[in-house]
């Protein structure tokens, strides 16, 4: 919200010198009231309501909501999912943006279109695709997964049995009995699907606008590929990258539809925060439901503040 307010302020100061010649003050104030009123009714009030409902029975009851092991597990799972999804999408986003912006190849338009696919496809379908592929009667059922992963299971099992490598045991266990659907893995897959455009979408226009000249210069001066990327490309797209990562993270934590389809709703095991909020709400535990919702909203607010900070820092650099 802070971002929008600051943007509004910026807009209004910019409009000020034109006031005498163009828009009437009445129009300006009408538009401003309309925008702020809209914001108040549809954004601020619901947000306030979430916190008010969460704190209705006092801070004690609010904190008690987080004592529930299932709530704790939901928060943990949400963080695990975000921590797995964001780096993967960062990698993919940079690779895709680089390929699209810096190279000419056949099917470039197609790739660009495909990156936008998750924006166009309903999250429910994203979830169902994975059910179709990985479920017991899917194209790639658990039995087939077990056969395919057998060498990996053996390798990681052997490695985990070596001193100092015990931490690899969960991985070995997963390879031995691969679980995708109704498991954290499936939730991560579905979340990757719905969040993968965020980083790439931010980077592509930025990289395209910057062109290849600076990279050419670096290469001419004898820089290696990695040096060029780290010293020339990365600093140029840094802010876009941050911005994409933040949006990707926000969506990864908040996704409901796609995750609901692949989750199986096993409490304390495959329920992320958004799913857990729905469960609590449906069990008449309104204070707990809104307490968890307020935490999720807080995460979103932190994200938004970070985003504004980055915008601010960015605009100062270019001012």
């Amino acid at each position: 919200m802070a971002a929008i307010v600051s943007r509004l302020e910026r807009a209004s100061t910019r409009a000020a010198p034109r006031r005498a010649t163009a828009d009437s003050p009445a129009l300006k104030w009408t538009l401003l009231t309309l925008a702020l009123g809209f914001l108040l009714v549809f954004l601020v009030l619901p947000l306030v309501a979430v916190f008010a409902e969460a704190l209705r029975r006092g801070v004690g009851a609010y904190l008690e909501a987080f004592q529930d092991p299932d709530t704790f597990a939901a928060i943990r799972l949400t963080l695990i999912v975000a921590a797995s999804v964001v780096p993967l999408n960062l990698l993919f986003g940079v690779a895709a943006a680089w390929a699209i912006a810096k190279y000419e190849f056949k099917g470039k338009a197609l790739l660009t279109t495909f990156i936008d696919l998750p924006f166009a496809v309903s999250p429910v379908i994203a979830g169902l695709i994975y059910v179709l592929i990985f479920s017991a009667h899917g194209w790639f059922p658990p039995e087939a997964q077990q056969v395919l992963f057998k060498p990996f299971a053996a390798a990681s099992g052997w490695l985990a049995s070596q001193p100092g490598f015990l931490w690899l045991d969960p991985l070995a266990y997963w390879f031995e009995q691969p679980k995708i659907i109704f498991h954290t893995t499936g939730i991560v897959f579905a979340t990757i699907f719905v969040t993968f455009p965020f980083v790439a979408r931010e980077l592509i226009p930025l990289m395209q606008a910057q062109g290849k000249d600076e990279e050419y210069a670096a290469v001419t001066l004898g820089a290696s590929g990695w040096q060029t990327f780290r010293r020339v490309t990365l600093p140029n797209v840094k802010w876009g990258l941050f911005y994409g990562v933040i949006l990707c993270n926000a969506r990864a934590m908040g996704e409901f539809g796609a995750v609901a389809v692949v989750s199986g709703k096993i409490r304390g095991e495959t329920t992320t925060m958004p799913l857990h909020i729905e469960i609590l709400y449906n069990e008449y535990l309104f204070v707990s439901a809104f307490a968890v919702a307020s935490l999720l909203a807080l995460l979103a607010l932190v994200t938004l503040v970070l985003k504004s900070a980055i915008e601010w820092a960015h605009s100062r650099r270019h001012a």
């Binding site: 990996f152 985990a160 049995s161 266990y173």
Partner: peptide, 14 residues
């Protein structure tokens, strides 16, 4: 990997 897949799976104590 091929050699390992033939060997009986060695497990850390779970």
């Amino acid at each position: 990997l091929a050699a390992l897949s033939l060997a009986p799976a060695a497990h850390a104590q779970r």
